[in-house]
C-alpha cells in the first residue's frame, strides 16, 4: 500500500530548505521502492500556517513545514525556546537543545503530529534605523510586529513599548517611509525580504531563537509500515539536520553580507546588557504566569543554562 504525503511550506521553490527536503523525499521514495512518496507545495501556495493546518485536518494535505509557534495548539510546550534573550550564543542553544528537543518532539507526537529533527532558524535580532543600545533606547521607537501575532506583541510590550502591527507586505515601504523604524528578524530573513537596505543598525544581542518543524499528520504516518516508518524517520532526520547545519552557515554569511552593506553591529556595555536580561527575564516570567509557557520545562532550561555557564 503506497502512501503519498502532501507537504505544504512557505519556503519558496529553489531555496536551500526546499532543495534539502526534496533530496530527502527522493531518497525515501528510492529506498522504499515508491511505497512512501512526498509531494511538495512550496511558497505558501496552500495558504498560511492556519490554512495549512485546516487542510491537514480534512486530509487534503498530510503535513507541512511550520514555524514552531503555529503548532502550539497541539502542544503548548513547543514554545519553550521562544523566550526573549534567553540564550547568549548558538552554543548555549545547542547545549539546551541536546537535552530538550526530545521533550518538544514527544509532546507534539502526543498531540497527533509526527515531527523529526527540529530545524533551527537562528536568532532574530533587533534591526533599526537609529542605534538601540539600552532598553531605554526602545522608547519612542516604532517597532513592527506581524499582525495577529500575540506572542510578538507580548514580547515587545514587555520592554515597555507599544508595537505597530502591519501585514508583511507593508514592512518594506513602512521602513522607507518611517511608518516603522525597528524590526526584529533573522539575518537571513532580512536579506531575503530585502529589508536590509532600509536599516542601519543591528543590536548585537540574540533576541529570540526561532525554529521550524517538519510535521506529518500522525494518522497518515501510521498508515506506513513500521519498517518504512524507520526509513522515513532516518532519511528525513538526516535531511533536516543538514538544513539545520546549512541554515547556521547561511546566517553567518548573511551577517557578513549585512556588515559589508555597512550596517553597524552595536554591542551594549555589561551594565546595559544586564538591564536587557533583567527585563527579558520578567517577560518570560509573565508568559509563564499567563499560562502561555509550561513552568517545569522553562525551569529546566534555566537550570541547564546555569550549568552550562558555570562550566565555561
Amino acid at each position: 500500500q503506497a502512501v503519498t504525503i502532501k507537504i505544504a511550506t512557505i519556503s519558496p521553490e529553489g531555496s536551500m530548505w526546499m532543495e534539502k527536503m526534496r533530496q530527502g523525499a527522493n531518497q525515501v521514495a528510492k529506498v522504499t521502492d515508491n511505497r512512501v512518496k512526498f509531494k511538495f507545495y512550496p511558497g505558501g501556495v496552500m495558504g498560511n500556517d492556519k490554512a495549512v493546518l485546516r487542510k491537514i485536518r480534512i486530509n487534503q494535505l498530510q503535513g507541512g513545514a511550520f514555524m514552531a509557534g503555529s503548532l502550539s495548539s497541539f502542544f503548548q510546550g513547543n514554545q519553550i525556546y521562544a523566550q526573549p534573550m534567553k540564550f547568549k550564543s548558538q552554543e548555549e542553544v545547542d547545549y539546551v537543545r541536546g537535552h530538550m528537543d526530545a521533550y518538544i518532539i514527544n509532546g507534539l507526537g502526543d498531540g497527533g503530529i509526527v515531527c523529526f529533527t527540529l530545524m533551527g532558524g537562528g536568532f532574530a535580532y533587533i534591526m533599526s534605523k537609529s542605534p538601540i543600545t539600552s532598553v531605554g533606547d526602545l522608547k519612542n521607537r516604532k517597532i513592527w510586529v506581524p499582525d495577529n501575532d500575540k506572542a510578538s506583541v507580548d514580547s515587545v510590550s514587555s520592554f515597555g513599548v507599544s508595537p505597530i502591527a502591519l501585514p508583511l507586505a507593508d514592512v518594506r515601504t513602512g521602513l522607507q517611509s518611517g511608518l516603522i523604524d525597528t524590526v526584529g528578524t533573522s539575518p537571513v530573513g532580512a536579506v531575503v525580504l530585502q529589508w536590509h537596505t532600509e536599516i542601519k543598525y543591528i543590536t548585537n544581542i540574540p533576541l529570540l531563537y526561532v525554529y521550524a518543524v517538519f510535521a506529518i499528520d500522525k494518522k497518515t504516518f501510521n498508515k506506513i509500515s513500521p519498517d518504512d516508518q524507520k526509513i522515513v524517520s532516518g532519511v528525513m532526520n538526516q535531511a533536516l539536520q543538514e538544513i539545520d547545519r546549512l541554515n547556521r552557515q547561511d546566517n553567518v554569511k548573511a551577517i557578513e553580507a549585512l556588515k559589508k552593506q555597512g550596517i553597524e553591529f552595536i554591542t551594549p556595555s555589561q551594565e546595559q546588557m544586564n538591564e536587557w536580561m533583567a527585563t527579558a527575564a520578567k517577560a518570560s516570567q509573565k508568559m509563564i504566569n499567563a499560562g502561555d509557557l509550561p513552568k517545569a520545562p522553562a525551569d529546566e532550561i534555566d537550570a541547564l543554562l546555569e550549568q552550562y555557564r558555570k562550566n565555561q
Binding site: 502591519l166 507586505a169 507593508d170 518611517g178
Partner: peptide, 10 residues
C-alpha cells in the same frame, strides 16, 4: 501621508 510615514499603503 504614505511617504512621510503617517499611514501604511494598506
Amino acid at each position: 501621508g504614505i511617504y512621510s510615514g503617517y499611514f501604511a499603503v494598506s
